[in-house]
Design a protein around this nucleic acid. Structure first.
Lengths: 236, 236
DNA sequence: CGGCCAGTTGAAGCGTGTCAACCGTAGTGG
DNA sequence: CCACTACGGTTGACACGCTTCAACTGGCCG
């Protein structure tokens, strides 16, 4: 059972080389682990908060609220993701953060993390690149929402999630876990739950995927990625 | 006539305090100014390039290409914007950058800029915050595209552009310049040119705005912002 | 056992897209 | 200086993808 912060170190080192001192100093960070059984709102739009949130198990969502009451899911986080990095440097965080059921969040005090950021350039550099990559991904979502039809959009969303799961070693032989309900998938892709249902059915009927509970199996990877207009991009 | 880099200093200092040494070192940066009469592609998706692009006059677009040939405009840049900051640290830039007609681009060699980034923590800090704010804005666009109808979406897009213009002192008595064609507005908002035309007409007919060539006049600011579901957010 | 929630399916309505035609203006070349 | 062309804007008719509303199922949990 690895130290919680080692998950973070693994993740961060994808964005910039860390030496042993860097790693040690991260491991010295004080943390508080929080396990949640059910869905929990960790932060509200506009919150300040004094902790950085690291998702060490399970899933989390980031969502924004429109004036008409609609919500938009802007990210589905998986193990290893930092959930509120912007709030380290911005007065207010712009999204809600929601932990899904059976997740584990590791709280890291902002103050301690900030001194790390200042004293260890390699860590600061890696964090910077991490936010840049993140921004690229969000722009990719823009393209997905604006320019593709429902079926393609959903397939693309699933492809993207599958790739992230794979990168964290959470994929086994072409099948992966999709923790969102169809309504939430609709929320992330700008569609209604009903239409998500129909399009998923179409993907299944065409033999591209199959699903069983929250587990999705990729039956035909090539066709599936084509259906999602998905071309994995090596951003690192 | 201010030094081109002073525009950049003004912009950057919104994100973090810069002392005189910081400012001086920016002004020492070697630059090459490039004026364009017509639309010019400055960078292609996947390009490397060895210069940072600073827009010192006019307008620029960032756009991504979907597999089906569709393009999606992800940003409309105004004077003072850095057009390809991610490419400083990421191997490949993920978007196309296009300068609109009658614009002026100032090229800054990446190498020199990188040493500045390393030697001046205040500058690095401001740049970091700049990218964080940028990411917030893109997430806001996600919400706009996915969760609002065409009329609201267009009004929101215009509100956002108006606010940026105002922040750069490019707005005079409730009227501002909108350099995009209706087709391009559609491209940015996920709509067709025809429908953009209709919705603009509806905004004009309802007395919220009027327009004359590329200039837009806000006739009723309160109603206009309500129509766009727009609430200016102080991210700094 | 009962209630709630996710998923599923059908029918009908409507918001955008598509296609097509026309206008005005700016730019171009003879 | 005048065609000629190209492009942005404007408008109408029609098509269609997605939403909305509604009903029903099955599974999970209290």
């Amino acid at each position: 059972m690895p130290h919680n912060l080692e998950i973070f170190i693994d993740e961060l080192s994808l964005y910039g080389a860390l030496n042993n001192e860097d790693r040690e100093s991260i491991l010295m960070l004080p943390t508080m682990v929080h396990r949640v059984k059910k869905v929990v709102h960790l932060a509200q739009q506009g919150d300040v908060g004094d902790s950085l949130l690291l998702l060490t198990s399970g899933y989390a969502l980031q969502q924004k609220n429109a004036g008409n009451g609609n919500r938009q899911i802007s990210a589905l986080n998986v193990r290893g993701d930092l959930l509120n990095l912007p709030s380290l440097f911005l007065a207010r965080f712009d999204s809600d953060v929601v932990a899904l059921k059976n997740s584990e969040i590791t709280f890291i005090p902002k103050l301690e993390f900030l001194t790390l950021f200042r004293k260890r350039p390699a860590i600061a550099y890696a964090l910077f690149r991490m936010t840049l990559v993140d921004a690229c991904l969000v722009r990719g979502q823009l393209l997905n929402l604006a320019r593709r039809d429902a079926r393609t959009r959903i397939a693309h969303f699933l492809c993207h999630h599958a790739e992230r799961m794979g990168a964290r070693g959470l994929m086994s032989s072409d099948s992966f876990d999709m923790p969102l309900t169809q309504a939430q998938i609709g929320n992330a892709t700008g569609l209604t739950a009903v239409h998500v249902n129909r399009m998923l059915k179409s993907l299944v009927d065409d033999g591209l995927i199959s699903h069983n509970g929250s587990s999705i199996y990729i039956a035909n990877r090539e066709k599936f990625m084509a259906a999602g207009d998905y071309y994995p991009q090596d951003l690192y």
